[in-house]
Amino acid sequence: MNSITEKEKKLNQTLEKLKNLDLVKKDKSPELENLKEQKNQLEIEYKQLLENYNFLEKENLKLKQEFEEFKSKDEDEKRREQKFSEKIDELNQETDSLLDEIEKWQM
Rank of each mutant, 00 (worst) to 15 (best):
M1D: 13
N2H: 11
N2Y: 15
N2T: 09
N2L: 15
S3M: 15
S3V: 11
I4L: 15
K7A: 13
E8Y: 07
E8G: 02
E8L: 13
K9V: 02
K9C: 07
L11H: 04
N12P: 02
T14Q: 04
E16Q: 13
E16I: 01
E16C: 03
K17Q: 11
K17W: 11
L18W: 05
L18S: 08
K19H: 12
N20L: 14
D22C: 08
L23D: 11
V24Q: 15
K25L: 06
K25M: 04
K25N: 12
K25G: 09
K26V: 10
D27F: 12
K28F: 09
K28H: 10
K28R: 12
K28C: 10
P30F: 00
E31D: 05
E33V: 05
N34D: 07
L35S: 09
L35M: 09
K36R: 14
K36M: 08
Q38N: 05
K39Y: 10
N40W: 02
N40R: 11
Q41P: 02
I44M: 12
E45H: 03
Y46V: 12
Y46H: 14
Y46T: 10
K47W: 07
K47E: 15
Q48M: 14
Q48P: 00
L49I: 10
L49E: 13
L50I: 06
E51Q: 13
E51I: 09
E51A: 15
E51W: 06
N52L: 14
N54V: 05
F55V: 12
L56K: 14
E57M: 09
E57S: 12
K58M: 11
E59W: 03
N60A: 10
K62G: 08
L63W: 06
Q65M: 06
E66M: 06
E66Q: 12
E66I: 04
F67G: 03
E68P: 00
E69Y: 03
F70M: 07
F70H: 07
K71H: 02
S72E: 07
K73H: 03
D74P: 00
D74S: 04
D74F: 07
E75A: 03
D76T: 04
E77F: 07
E77Y: 05
R80C: 03
E81W: 01
E81K: 08
Q82F: 02
K83F: 07
K83N: 15
S85E: 13
E86L: 03
E86R: 02
I88Y: 02
I88G: 02
E90T: 04
E90Q: 15
N92T: 01
T95F: 13
T95D: 09
T95S: 12
S97T: 11
S97A: 09
S97M: 10
L98T: 08
D100P: 01
D100R: 05
E101L: 15
E101K: 10
I102P: 01
I102T: 09
E103V: 07
E103R: 13
E103C: 03
W105G: 08
M107N: 15
